[in-house]
Simulated scan of single mutants.
Amino acid sequence: MTAGTGGGVLAQLMAQAAGEGADLVALRAIAEEAGELGASRALARLGLSDAAAAGDMAELRELLGAWRDAKRSAWKAAVAWVLRVAGALLLAGLATRLGFWDFLK
Rank of each mutant, 00 (worst) to 15 (best):
L83Y: 03
G21F: 00
L64D: 15
A34Q: 15
L48P: 01
A92K: 11
D102N: 14
A17W: 06
G4A: 08
G7W: 10
A54P: 00
L43G: 04
A3D: 13
A86S: 08
A95N: 09
G87H: 04
R68D: 15
A74E: 12
R72A: 15
A92G: 07
A92P: 01
A92S: 14
E36C: 04
T5C: 02
A70Y: 10
G6D: 10
G55Q: 13
L98K: 04
L48K: 06
G65L: 08
E33L: 09
L63T: 15
R84I: 01
V79T: 10
A34V: 03
A31D: 14
A88W: 02
R41Y: 05
G55M: 14
L90H: 10
A18L: 03
D23M: 04
R97H: 15
D69A: 14
E62C: 05
A53E: 06
L43I: 06
A22M: 10
A66T: 11
R68T: 10
L24D: 14
M14E: 09
L64T: 11
T2H: 11
A74T: 07
E20W: 01
Q12W: 10
L48C: 00
R72K: 12
K71D: 14
L94N: 05
A15R: 07
R68P: 00
G87F: 01
E36G: 00
R45P: 03
W81A: 03
L60Y: 06
R41P: 00
A29W: 08
L60F: 01
V82P: 01
L24R: 15
L83A: 05
I30E: 09
G19M: 05
Q16N: 11
W67K: 06
T96I: 08
G19S: 14
E32F: 09
L98N: 09
S49C: 02
W75E: 12
A3E: 13
R68Y: 07
D23H: 05
L48A: 06
E20T: 06
A58T: 01
E32C: 05
G65N: 14
A70C: 01
A51V: 07
R97I: 13
L94F: 13
A78E: 10
A44P: 04
G35F: 10
L83T: 02
G21I: 02
R97M: 15
A3F: 03
G8K: 10
D69K: 13
A51M: 03
A17T: 07
L98F: 15
R45H: 13
L13S: 08
A42W: 05
L37A: 14
A53I: 08
A77M: 02
A77N: 09
V9P: 01
G7I: 12
L83G: 01
A70I: 00
A44I: 00
L46C: 09
A17I: 05
R97A: 15
I30C: 02
A44L: 06
L91P: 02
A26P: 03
G6S: 06
A86F: 00
A77V: 03
E20N: 13
A77I: 00
A29H: 12
A95F: 12
A44E: 06
S49Q: 07
L91S: 08
G35L: 06
G99A: 12
D56R: 15
T5Q: 14
G21A: 11
R61S: 13
V25H: 14
A26E: 15
